[in-house]
Design a protein around this nucleic acid. Sequence first.
DNA 1: GTTTCATGTCATTGT
DNA 2: ACACAATGACATGAA
Length: 718
Amino acid sequence: MLSLKKYLTEGLLQFTILLSLIGVRVDVDTYLTSQLPPLREIILGPSSAYTQTQFHNLRNTLDGYGIHPKSIDLDNYFTARRLLSQVRALDRFQVPTTEVNAWLVHRDPEGSVSGSQPNSGLALESSSGLQDVTGPDNGVRESETEQGFGEDLEDLGAVAPPVSGDLTKEDIDLIDILWRQDIDLGAGREVFDYSHHGGEQDTWAREGAEALARNLLFPADISSITEAVPSESEPPALQNNLLSPLLTGTESPFDLEQQWQDLMSIMEMQAMEVNTSASEILYNAPPGDPLSTNYSLAPNTPINQNVSLHQASLGGCSQDFLLFSPEVESLPVASSSTLLPLAPSNSTSLNSTFGSTNLTGLFFPPQLNGTANDTAGPELPDPLGGLLDEAMLDEISLMDLAIEEGFNPVQASQLEEEFDSDSGLSLDSSHSPSSLSSSEGSSSSSSSSSSSSSSASSSASSSFSEEGAVGYSSDSETLDLEEAEGAVGYQPEYSKFCRMSYQDPAQLSCLPYLEHVGHNHTYNMAPSALDSADLPPPSALKKGSKEKQADFLDKQMSRDEHRARAMKIPFTNDKIINLPVEEFNELLSKYQLSEAQLSLIRDIRRRGKNKMAAQNCRKRKLDTILNLERDVEDLQRDKARLLREKVEFLRSLRQMKQKVQSLYQEVFGRLRDENGRPYSPSQYALQYAGDGSVLLIPRTMADQQTRRQERKPKDRRK
DNA sequence: GTTTCATGTCATTGT
DNA sequence: ACACAATGACATGAA
């Protein structure tokens, strides 16, 4: 019953305090229980879904179809193998785990999630170009921590600038500049990073593209492809044509929101696959395959995050899961005859070969589609739009909360360090062994309190026994004195002199925050009071006169002390109150006391004990509040950290998509029909088949599949 | 005179 | 049954 009551009362108190501390708007509970799942979904779901990308199947593709019998270009083949591994590396991202281990009482140890976490996930192969990209970006991210949030805010569509009182003007300016870069150039920082590593990227992308090309299944005539695919020494013009529009960021600026829709669409695409058997379906590598284990990320596997979606804003975005979706398997895989009515009468211009439909349309911004987007079908509704809105709203609201709470990430991280370093500080660790650090509950205090009564008889020392010492050193002396004086002696109640020793400023930290924390959790104040009682205040001594001193003492006496004196109780109230029962009874037996005296003594004892109990109770209450306050701060820190991680993850996704775009372009651009002419993106699109092969199919088919797939996720969401 | 805060006290309940 | 701790509610005094 006690525990039940305790839970009830403390729960109510905690809830109330939380509401008041956080503010009703914040509604941490809602955030953690309702908002978090989406957050977790966004962060984890996509990651695990993404791991199921059919890129994995390139491996099988390579083994199964990679080399066409007609292919004689071994050089290309080996290159393709190498590139293929890089392509595969695409899906090995890391995402920071996001966990809220507990709330209110327990806090997840710092550092278990953020910061280094992304690196602890499935690491990208060191040789992979992907890592080349992500590595520098991580570095940048660390250095940009302060302003990253501002930019991210913009990325997330937040309208309110992250201005807080703690942001310096430089911070704000930086944020602003970055933001404008994003918008004006249609490219984020990632893009610049990307182009900065253009050499690596080019190589990587080219090789990856070739590898992909090697693994394409072309029922009609694979040899034509292998012959057509240029060798390693192919003119750089091709790459330039393919990549420069992406990398230079010179294309028209994209709508930010559109970009985010793209991002979100990818995320949803992944989310759709999270709990499906997509991995089994699409990834048919043998179970023991080390690569397969690499690819099969656990749901909470951190994913690296360096995706730029700045170039991914296409109307056809929704179609891009043609490439990834498990549904592809259900595609009526086109027969060779259907697949290859190859009549790419289009010009050889690479730009013109890229239509806006299907995969190409997906990956290419409209600006890149050149003149060949005439066949682009009606724009299909983005099946991910809903999620996008949700996620964006979620993000925005979270950000707003963070801002409104004056809770910017910079502060948060600083706080994090501070709190980590001195978590125990405040809580008066030096003052009392049972300080706040151990006062997670009130049990410690009660235990110490109970110990106090047992040690109450220890009256030899005048020093304050923190362990609950209720012993009064002067008890015996006082008793002697009192008895000598006629046994009416009394002691001013300590509380009047030095109430709450814990309030002694000298014992407290200078920090205002700690002012009310540095108290003795044993909740026994008597000893210090004793000192005060034994030694009248200096002011009284200076005045010298015994009358004044007596007056002062009188004034300091409690009512019970006055009563005791009036009733001529032969011992001190301290003894009455603090002696153990046995000693107390023994003491009573020593004197011949009237019934009135005995009654008063019992009342005094009762009230005295109750008074201390009340003090303890109040301190416990205060402790509870302080603990809750600290918990709230912890939660706020956690929230800020999670937001940071989420933002980083989104950024990573953006980059990843950009890379996929590049690879797609590369691959598609290298495909050649029997006549050695490139395929028209407006007429053909690349698709992944369920068995891991990559198909070149007519756009009409691809569109049908796209529509079919779009319906399912929507239904699923409803 | 009113408000707020700290403290004391009482009544009650649970251990 | 008793002692006591805990605690809500109220009273009181001081700032």
